[in-house]
Structures are given as structure tokens and as C-alpha cells.
Write a protein that binds this DNA or RNA. Structure first.
Lengths: 192, 192
DNA sequence: GAGCGGCGAGAACGACCGTTCTCTCCTGCT
DNA sequence: AGCAGGAGAGAACGGTCGTTCTCGCCGCTC
């Protein structure tokens, strides 16, 4: 078993546990047991718990970004691409393991106490807004639209998590349709 | 000094500390010191930390509900009342002490580990949606509108918290204007 | 004025956390 | 076969947490 295998397994286990129960509630010993790794090996791969946390945040960022992009690329028309992200949210909310956006959660848990976590969450959300901005620009929408859709997506995530139902994705999608259509009725550049 | 004074002071102090740094990061000793109360008196008024947490959640709920309602009542027209909640958000986000919605934060911190906190957060958000539902009904909007505006408000709260800027309130308000106007163009009942 | 009941300050306690250390055992090389 | 080195299990350590206990002090009552 290579060192990469061990790292991957630790991060995958921490992903599950941190997502399910929060970061502070999961101790190193529980993580060690669940990952099936000796404590020595754990600290050989990661110098501290906070380095594991950062690695998990990276994993969350990559998996969210890739999943979103893959879902968006299934649609062809720019308008459909803008709306596809809400279908991605719907799929995500429907999973049993869904317990809210890990970045919102980790920011709430540790943002005030760990500048690294706060900064990583900020950058993740910023990169999402930039991504939505590109989709909106491709659709020829004015620059107002992207932050509005981003806010809808964020709201759907917290609402779905707290309410415990995936309904928010549908509500957000229908709101997004109205906003997108209104924005495209006053495009920022001619349709050609 | 009456017992009520002490309770109020403890809750007010816990409010500040929990809001600023999260619940788990604030220990009983720090709370005791900041509130200027003996540890004995603290445990005389509250049997446990979790009972203080619940009391703070109640305070948050009351202060949010009252503040929102007061702001909404400043507007007369039903449409303005629906939009007024985003002005309330803008004022809130602009405060130095703003660090996100306490219910979203406490749910993220403790929701998975404390059913009481999770349930209280759920009920708080539900009561907000009911409130928005009344405002929307008064404006004669179809029932779709209320959850959409609620999601916008939630998204604005998390976006403003993580980004560290109050801009999200303005974005959410402009999105809400579009949604409200679109909804009122297809009213659920005649304008009379 | 003597006893007493309640108070504040803070020590103490048990549990748990993140991290390190020890000790044993297994493996692979010569 | 004998030895060196690394790995695993888990004890140990220092710190902190929520909670309780102790103790000395103050103001009240007879």
C-alpha cells in the first residue's frame, strides 16, 4: 500500500465524518479508527488536524467544481447551462449524506477562529461566483445576473440543509428561470 | 440585583460571544468572566451550557423577528413590504458585529450533534418562511413567491457572511424586485 | 455579639482533545 | 540465524472543557 493510498483513504474518511458530524466533533482517534490507520501513520502523512481539514476542503472544492461543471456541460444552450446548476443542486440535496455545503458549515464552525478556513471558504464561494459569471456572460446577460443566481444557489443550500428536504432546489430553479428570462430580455450585448 | 438581571446579563453576554466566535469556542469560564458573574450563580441560573445555548437561540429569534417586523411595518404598500426585508438585511450586514445568521451557524456547528439545536433552527427558518408567506399573500402574489424570496434572503446572509461584505443585500433586493414584479403580473387573486 | 446561611473565588474533577512516546513484534537483509 | 529498522497498538502527556466542591467572607437574625 503506497503512501498516496493512505493519504487518499484518510482524506476520504475525514470527508465522510466531517460532512456528517462537523469538524470539531470528530477527533483524531475516531478518524484513525474509521480510516483503519495507525496514529503514527496518520501523523506521518499529516502534521496536524488542521492540515487534514485543509485537505478535506480542497477535496470538497474539487469535487463540487468538477461535478457542477460536468452537469452544466450536459446542457447546450447558454440559458439551459445557467439553469443546470440548480439541477445539480437538486441531485445533491437528494442524497442521504447531504448535510449542507461543507464550506458554509466549516466557515460557521471555524471561520471566526481559523483564518485559513475562513479564507478558503471565501475563495471557494468567490470561484463559484466567477464561474456563474462566465455562464451568464456566455448567455449575454447583464452583469447583475451572476451574483443574483449565486445568492439563490447559496440560499437553496442552507434552506435544504436546515429544512431537511430538497424542495429548495426546485424553488430556486423556478426563481432563476424568472431572473434569467428577465435578464435576457435586456441583454448586455446584442444577440448577433 | 435581581435574578432576572443576572439571567439577562448572562444571555446578552453569551449572545455577543457566541455570535462573534461560535458556540463551541466559548467556554463557560470565559462567559463567566465576561458576564461578571460567579460560576456558582451561572449554574444556579442555567443547569448546563446547552440550556444557555437554547436561551441565546430564543433571544436571536425574538430580536430577528421583532427587528424584521418593525422594518417591514415602515412600508405601506404590500410590494414595498415584501422588499423591505432586504433593506433590513442590508442594515444588519453593515454592522461590524455581523458574522452571519446565528441559526445557520449554530446548525452548522451543532445541528448534527444536538437535535435540539437542529430543531430550533428548523423552526426559526420555517417561521420566517411563514412570515414571508403572509406578506406575499397580502400582496396577492402566487404561493411560489414566498419560498423564492426566503431562499434569496438565506443566500444573502451566507454570502454576506463569507464574503465579508454587505453587497449581497443589494443583489438580493434587485433579484427580489424582479421576482415580485413577475409574480404580481400573474396575481393569485384579483387586485380588486 | 454570636451563630448561621448564602455568596464569590477559584481549586478540583473527570472526560476528552490533539499530539507524542514507548514498547513490542514483524520483516527483510546478510 | 541474527540483527536492524520500521510499523502498529496504545499508553502517556499537557491542555481545555463542562461541571461540582471547598472554603473563607459578608450581612442578617436572636
Amino acid at each position: 500500500m503506497t503512501s498516496d493510498d493512505v493519504r487518499t483513504r484518510i482524506i476520504a474518511t475525514a470527508d465522510d465524518l466531517y460532512n456528517a458530524r462537523g469538524i470539531q466533533s470528530v477527533g483524531m482517534d475516531e478518524l484513525r479508527t474509521a480510516a483503519g490507520v495507525s496514529l503514527k501513520k496518520l501523523y506521518q502523512e499529516f502534521p496536524s488536524k488542521s492540515s487534514i481539514v485543509m485537505a478535506v476542503l480542497e477535496r470538497w472544492h474539487a469535487s463540487w467544481t468538477e461535478g457542477l461543471d460536468a452537469r452544466v456541460r450536459q446542457a447546450d444552450a447558454p440559458r439551459d447551462r445557467l439553469l443546470a446548476m440548480f439541477d445539480y443542486l437538486a441531485e445533491w440535496f437528494g442524497q442521504d449524506s447531504f448535510r449542507g455545503c461543507g464550506f458554509i458549515n466549516s466557515f460557521a464552525e471555524l471561520g471566526a477562529v481559523s483564518p485559513d478556513v475562513a479564507e478558503y471558504a471565501r475563495r471557494h464561494k468567490e470561484s463559484f461566483q466567477v464561474y456563474v459569471g462566465h455562464l451568464a456572460a456566455d448567455a449575454g446577460a447583464p452583469s447583475d445576473l451572476a451574483p443574483q443566481l449565486s445568492i439563490l444557489a447559496e440560499g437553496a443550500q442552507t434552506t435544504a440543509a436546515i429544512a431537511g428536504t430538497p424542495d429548495a432546489a426546485g424553488h430556486a430553479r423556478r426563481a432563476a428561470e424568472v431572473l434569467v428570462d428577465a435578464a435576457l430580455a435586456h441583454p448586455s450585448r446584442p444577440t448577433g
